[in-house]
Design a protein around this nucleic acid. Structure first.
Lengths: 141, 141
DNA sequence: ATACTTGCAAAAGATTTGCCGCATG
DNA sequence: CATGCGGCAAATCTTTTGCAAGTAT
């Protein structure tokens, strides 16, 4: 039983064949495709279809939304196009997107995290969520 | 002649009646609606229509895209919904969005800015662009 | 048994585009 | 005059939804 299935149990999200498949596809995502992998719904549907070819894209949409609301996966709206998903990481991280290759690098910077809280507080707010995306091009060395 | 019109001249963006109207609406945006104002295309169309009621929404779409590509306005994809626009500020800033009221507060934090460059460099990248959005709720005092 | 899920196709919401007459430089 | 622009409606793309039938607990 993968991580996502466990979380479904915890959160009382009913498991079905389709959801199990989508859970598996998302759980496997990184191992198979590397750290750059943040699939969109189409891609998830493709991968899920390889396991069960009658799964519909509507179900994929419904399932990622369900998982997102349960805090099981994270949705990202990187520049421009469709939403992309990754399973909720154990520790939070942000993303650097290679503007040439599209590759996504995950990173954490404690200092930046702390400063965000501080900035919000200074403005009279409690920080609830944040989004930090860096866009860059590889330094030719 | 407003700021946006000036920039159009500079960048050789041809001015037309419609574009002048949209430029004016965006230039006025802050003065009229306050710092929270980051209108979406519908809203821009509404405001433009008040000046010239035959302006079409397709033109608004085409114009904001044109302005964006010329670096004259900035496009934001805040959580979830449609794109919102503001005229390119003289100095860059980021946004804190009040998750209850939708109000948008602009801020700059030099330290965070510098850390971003540093993080990118550490990962082997030159920082080209970034997006930082804080989502928070007002601290009850 | 009952409430929740799924697949399908249709609908919806946002944005883009083809065409053709019209304006701008 | 030549090139580019604007209006309209149709097209596209992504995501959501109504419905009838099937499934999980």
């Amino acid at each position: 039983m993968n991580n996502i299935e466990k979380k479904c149990k915890e959160k009382n999200v009913r498991l079905t064949d389709q959801r199990r498949i989508i859970a598996k596809v998302m759980s496997d995502s990184k191992e198979i495709y590397g750290s750059k992998d943040h699939p969109d719904v189409d891609e998830l549907h493709k991968r899920a279809s390889a396991i069960d070819n009658k799964i519909s894209i509507a179900t994929v949409y419904r399932t990622v939304k369900l998982f997102e609301e349960a805090g099981i996966v994270e949705k990202h709206d990187f520049k421009g196009n469709k939403a992309r998903y990754e399973k909720s990481p154990d520790e939070h991280h942000d993303h650097l997107i290679d503007i040439n290759s599209g590759e996504i690098i995950e990173f954490v910077d404690k200092e930046i995290e702390e400063l965000q809280v501080k900035v919000a507080k200074k403005l009279g707010y409690k920080l609830v969520d944040h989004k930090l995306e860096l866009y860059g091009s590889k330094t030719k060395k």
